[in-house]
């Protein structure tokens, strides 16, 4: 870990000012990812701007939405009564992530910015376009069991490791940000990027902007949500495949549905075509299978992750069965 300055700020404006004047500064909140990356020498910010004391720690039910502040701890959000009542999928996804200790520390804003767990990104002796642009991708022909099957590029096949982000994507959340040019709102589907030729950029957030919170619009999904995460052990493991399902069910008819997948792409993977197929249809295993097949269109596997081409649809079918209560 390099030497760095530490500055605690008490206003969003001060945080933005620090980022504006120092291109190598980074925000720190829970630090559960950044500090790790600094210890590995993957990231070496010369200044840490501590945003833990900004007043973005509220969860509020608003007229047509639920607001969660950027510095709310994951554990707090996951156990919050309004979150459980209005957006239980988010709670399920967050509880499937990390460990109790990490969730106590990690924040909503930090989780949105969580970096990939690709082993080559972490190993500073390996080439990695995300860590050192232009150095190459060791994962392409390396050990890529955990890697992407959707939306990857020849520069990077890493995946976004967050569970929370998958649920936020399914739930059409909006990310609230603040920067030198004022405030703006970014739909979560546009917040995370595909790698393309610039895998060093995980998100569309500007370097000088800070996340202040997020908003999830009201919906009729609360009774039928499932976050199913398949992994190598039952806790503290990243997803081989995860699926977020939220259904607005009228008897056995699917009035509306949201589907997103984790562990498959550089960003949480929204399955819009599969949603379209299921919308207005009956909740039957037959239809779930058709949707899962459609969802896999365009998937591409590498040497060690071909199993995802089967595990992904299987997980999706199971998640749909669980969410809808349909057994056969």
């Amino acid at each position: 870990m390099n030497n760095f300055q530490y500055k605690r700020v008490s206003s969003p404006a001060a945080a933005i000012a620090e980022l504006s004047k120092d291109p190598a500064a980074k925000l720190v909140a829970g630090g559960t990812n950044l500090i790790d990356l600094m210890k590995y020498g993957v990231m070496a910010p010369d200044k840490l701007v501590d945003v833990n004391h900004l007043s973005f720690d509220a969860i509020k039910k608003e007229e047509r939405s639920l607001y969660i502040g950027a510095t709310v701890r994951n554990a707090v959000a996951a156990g919050n009564a309004d979150v459980l009542k209005y957006q239980p999928l988010l709670s399920q996804a967050m509880l499937a992530g990390a460990s109790a200790q990490l969730r106590n520390k990690a924040t909503m804003g930090g989780n949105l910015l969580q970096r990939t767990r690709c082993g080559y990104f972490y190993d500073i002796s390996a080439p990695c376009n995300k860590r050192v642009p232009g150095s190459g991708c060791a994962a392409l022909e390396g050990y890529n069991r955990m890697h992407a099957i959707f939306g990857a590029s020849s520069s990077c096949i890493a995946v976004n490791p967050s569970d929370m982000n998958v649920a936020l994507t399914a739930l059409d959340a909006t990310i609230l940000v603040s920067g030198p040019k004022g405030d703006r709102k970014i739909p979560v589907s546009e917040f995370h990027r595909l790698p393309g030729t610039h895998p060093e950029l995980d998100t569309t957030l500007d370097r000088k902007e800070i996340i202040t919170g997020l908003v999830i619009p009201d919906n009729n999904f609360a009774a039928h949500t499932t976050y199913l995460k398949v992994r190598d052990r039952i806790s503290y493991a990243f997803a081989l495949i995860s699926v977020a399902v939220a259904i607005d069910l009228d008897g056995t008819a699917i009035r509306d549905i949201r589907l997103a997948m984790g562990g498959v792409a550089h960003k949480p993977w929204r399955l819009t075509e599969a949603e379209q197929l299921l919308k207005g249809k009956q909740a039957t295993v037959e239809n779930f299978k058709m949707a899962a097949e459609l969802a896999m269109k365009g998937a591409k596997a590498y040497e060690h992750n071909a199993f995802k081409l089967k595990l992904a649809p299987n997980t999706m079918i199971q998640a749909l069965k669980t969410a809808s209560g349909v057994k056969a």
Binding site: G119, Y120, D123, A138, E141, Y143, D232, A237
Partner: peptide
């Protein structure tokens, strides 16, 4: 779950951390 994986191009361990080398947790 336990497996030390090497990248045979370099002989380097790719599952060295506790995040990548899985040992059972209590819930397993």
């Amino acid at each position: 779950m336990e497996e030390v994986v090497l990248d045979d191009r370099t002989g380097r361990t790719v599952t060295a951390s506790f995040g990548d080398y899985h040992v059972p947790v209590q819930a397993d």
